[in-house]
């Protein structure tokens, strides 16, 4: 078997999600090649070559791939993927945008968000917002799957010495153009990679009150997240949303503040190692998954927590 893993990166650095995806590839077994598609992404390819367990790195470096538009990268992944038994990408917004496009061109029904590998053709994945886990077997010749990164421990970023090969195929569909980007600037760790996450919900009341969470976060080196209710209410931007339709996180410590615990939020954080819930409603469903629950007014408890850390 041979597996093509699509690297997650921003042309400057290889993202950690790639290491989790390679871990899923290892669980399948076989030779693992990593494809780096981008522009000016040589450093990413070098980093990928050092990852433990990688046989070969393919690098497609062209202006057409600069913003990883799915129309272009999807075609390239289909062109290269036909030589492999499996094609995997992280279930990030980049992966989710590109991978089904590639799969359709390969005439393959992809499998989204795998959380376990049962055998080379059988995978587990959550459905119904994580209320149900389905075991799914693919009969396609090529298996195309996106990987829920929190379900696989990352492989070592060092220790490998794979060869780097250049791919000359340039797929430019000329149907899409990058216009601009508004990326959240933050000195705090990335939500999906942080070892501690503190999230606020509707109980926070407004966006200004999130300042309390930022202060705690800065003491703990934590990332700050939010429930869908807080995002929908306009307290904070969408990229902070933790949940089935937002980001899936599994830090060592997750602190839920003023979050009731709707199923779609739980689906995004219930694999965290230790969960703390602070909520004044002692009946809130969040307490049924919390290791440590504190029934208290968050406006008293959070500032106190900050001073005691």
């Amino acid at each position: 078997m041979s597996i093509l893993v699509i690297a997650e990166h921003d042309n400057a650095e290889l993202k950690g999600a790639t290491l989790n995806t390679i871990a899923a590839a290892k669980a399948i077994g076989g030779d693992i090649d990593v494809l780096v598609v981008g522009s000016g992404c040589g450093a990413v390819a070098e980093a990928a070559a050092k990852v433990d367990g990688v046989s070969k790195v393919l690098v497609a470096d062209n202006a057409a791939y600069e913003h990883q538009l799915g129309e272009n990268t999807g075609k390239l992944v289909a062109d290269l993927g036909k030589n492999y038994s499996h094609v995997l990408a992280a279930a990030t917004t980049t992966g989710k945008n590109m991978l089904p496009r590639a799969a359709a061109l390969l005439d393959v029904q992809p499998i989204s968000d795998i959380i376990a590998v049962e055998s080379p053709d059988t995978f587990k994945r959550p459905v119904y917002a994580g209320n149900v886990i389905a075991t799914v077997q693919s009969s396609d010749a090529i298996k195309v799957a996106s990987v829920r990164t929190t379900a696989f421990d990352p492989v070592a970023a060092e220790g490998g010495s794979a060869a780097v090969e250049t791919v000359d195929i340039v797929d430019d569909a000329h149907v899409s153009k990058f216009v601009g980007e508004e990326l959240a600037e933050s000195d705090r760790p990335e939500l999906t990679a942080a070892s501690v996450v503190i999230s606020g919900g509707r109980g926070m009341g407004n966006g200004e009150n999130f300042e309390m969470l930022y202060k705690v976060a800065d003491k703990l080196g934590a990332a700050v997240g939010a429930s869908r209710a807080a995002v929908d209410a306009g307290f904070v931007p969408n990229d902070m949303q933790v949940g089935q339709t937002g980001k899936i996180v599994a830090p060592d410590l997750y602190i839920a503040v003023g979050i009731s615990g709707a199923i779609q939020h739980l689906a995004g954080m219930k694999d965290s190692k230790v969960i703390v819930a602070i909520n004044k409603d002692e009946e809130a469903p969040i307490f049924s998954v919390a290791d440590y629950g504190l029934v208290a007014d968050l406006f008293d408890a959070v500032p106190e927590l900050e001073t005691k850390l």
């Binding site: 393959v108 059988t122 149900v132 886990i133 075991t135 799914v136 693919s138 998954v289 440590y292």
Partner: peptide, 30 residues
């Protein structure tokens, strides 16, 4: 269909933990 669902099951249940009395106890436990 290209894929077959072999089985569906509920997700692993997470057990509820304990309630702490105040912030001091929470920090101590953590």
């Amino acid at each position: 269909p290209r894929t077959k669902t072999l089985k569906v099951e509920p997700p692993a249940e997470r057990q509820a933990g304990i309630k702490v009395a105040d912030v001091a106890e929470l920090v101590e436990k953590l």
